[in-house]
């Protein structure tokens, strides 16, 4: 009986400890949001959020903190990245779930694994080594008089490749929740595999595809180092994909060193981080809830 009560005590105390750790790690979301907001709140004494987001002037020394160029930079880069990555990942995932023989799978997954495993800084190195020169010397001259190569397009390409593995794996997961019977019915009616893919698989998976894109967007929004290395870092509103830009994460990363030197500078940068956090939080929550519902209904 003694041994039993000892065991049960152990079970209870460890259970309590585990509960505590779980709750603690959960609270990180809340603490992070609150902490970032508190650090950025001083700026609201002078300016409103709307002012900051729409103002175009960035002169920290004069306490002018216009986020608009940075927001536009982020939007442009993310858009290009999605435009590049979406079709590639969609076709790849369709091929993997609907067409592929296991031999192909055996080689595609390691390739995707490698893309997923490569650190962001390596993508940046590759961007400066290959993509930037290619744009400035080969692609750029066809369209514009001069481009340095450090452009929206370069950042978009690099970022697009970075989010590929995430998109493919989520698409594959969604497509495989479509029941086998549904496929058989469609094929039995004489549809080609492509018709099956578009009319059944993609139609059924539409919410999931949307959720996945939202998730990929939120991943792209926050990517820092790789983008920072190839985007040019000029605080301007880009007018074409051959212009340099300056996305929000790059803004934070480039200026954290001097942010304690000027009034409100720190608050402005922390506001940038808070905005990133909130956007990512909202995007992630919505898409994950949708994705969970899909995988539950299989």
């Amino acid at each position: 009986m003694n041994i039993n009560s000892k065991r049960l005590l152990k079970e209870k105390t460890m259970g309590g400890a585990m509960f505590f750790i779980t709750i603690l790690s959960l609270l990180l979301v809340v603490v992070m949001g609150v902490g970032l907001y508190m650090k950025s709140s001083p700026i609201f004494n002078e300016l409103s959020l709307l002012d900051i987001l729409t103002a175009r002037e960035w002169r920290p020394a004069k306490s002018q903190f216009g986020f608009f160029p940075f927001v536009m930079g982020t939007v442009w880069v993310t858009l290009i990245a999605i435009i590049i990555a979406f079709p590639i990942s969609l076709f790849t995932a369709l091929y993997l779930t609907e067409y592929a023989k296991s031999v192909v799978r055996k080689y595609v997954y390691p390739a995707l694994d490698i893309l997923a495993a490569l650190p962001s800084v390596i993508y940046g190195v590759w961007g400066t080594l290959v993509v930037v020169p290619w744009i400035s010397k080969k692609l750029g001259p066809v369209f514009v008089d001069y481009t340095s190569g450090y452009t929206v397009l370069a950042a978009g390409i690099v970022l697009g490749i970075m989010i590929l593995p995430l998109l493919v794996s989520l698409f594959v997961e969604i497509f495989s929740t479509v029941p086998m019977a549904m496929r058989e019915v469609s094929l039995a009616l004489g549809s080609t595999r492509w018709q099956l893919s578009t009319k059944v698989i993609m139609k059924k998976s539409l919410p999931g595809i949307f959720a996945t894109i939202v998730l990929a967007v939120s991943r792209a929004l926050g990517e820092t180092i790789a983008v920072l290395m190839v985007c040019g870092n000029v605080p301007q509103i880009p007018h074409s994909i051959f212009d340099a830009c300056y996305p929000i994460p790059a803004l934070i990363a480039n200026n954290y060193g001097e942010m304690l030197s000027m009034p409100l500078y720190e608050a402005a940068l922390m506001l940038a981080a808070t905005i990133l956090f909130v956007v990512v939080l909202v995007f992630n929550l919505t898409s994950r809830i949708v994705l969970r519902r899909i995988s539950k209904n299989d």
Partner: peptide, 9 residues
């Protein structure tokens, strides 16, 4: 969500 939060944040 935490998985999705960018490392810069």
């Amino acid at each position: 969500v935490l998985f999705g939060v960018p490392s810069i944040v």
